[in-house]
């Protein structure tokens, strides 16, 4: 099952719109290395293609990130998930949810889609094993109703990967 829920159906505020348009322009001028924004006319949902960095476990594998923006972005964090199939990684659940503190508690409005993408790629690159999180099955079962990862109470215990 792919998670397609979005954190908020509410339209973007004017401030969020301005900021996202600005981010999109920046992205087109200098996209983060290894990422490609798939062009749509939907400013509120970006689909970004990521290619694993050379010399890492995910080298030349391609995955897709889905970024949904809430009404009050960037005060609120965007919801970022991997579309199916999600990479095998100790912090990425099979439903695409990503356990990464900056997407939840540690979000700061000074971050951008671009900086989030770079963090995710760095998380992938530093992995030493291709495996699912230990509690994958339990977690994915709990999310069956299309629950957003932003409603999860995450425990961030590992700063190595």
């Amino acid at each position: 099952m792919t998670s397609t829920s979005s954190p908020s159906r509410k339209a973007l505020s004017k401030i969020a719109c301005n900021r996202l348009q600005k981010e999109l322009v920046e992205w087109q001028v200098s996209p983060p290395a290894g990422f490609k924004h798939k062009v749509t006319d939907n400013l509120q949902r970006w689909v970004v293609e990521v290619v694993g960095a050379p010399g890492t476990l995910y080298a030349s594998e391609t995955y897709q990130l889905q970024v949904d923006f809430p009404e009050h972005y960037p005060m609120e964090a965007p919801q970022v998930i991997f579309l199916h199939p999600a990479p095998l990684h100790p912090h990425i659940y099979s439903n695409g949810h990503i356990c990464l503190d900056i997407l939840y508690d540690s979000w700061s409005p000074a971050m951008t889609v671009s900086s989030v993408c770079i963090s995710i790629l760095s998380m992938l690159s530093s992995s030493t094993v291709k495996q699912r999180p230990a509690d994958n099955d339990r977690y994915v079962k709990n999310c069956r109703n299309g629950r957003s990862p932003k409603e999860t109470r995450w425990w961030f215990h590992d700063d190595k990967v």
Binding site: S5, S6, P7, S8, R9, K10, S13, P70, E71, H72, M75, E76, N145, G146, R147, S148, K150, E151
Partner: peptide, 12 residues
Amino acid sequence: TQWIKKEAVSSD
């Protein structure tokens, strides 16, 4: 009030 936090859409 413009920035009052909105409740996330709750799960079914």
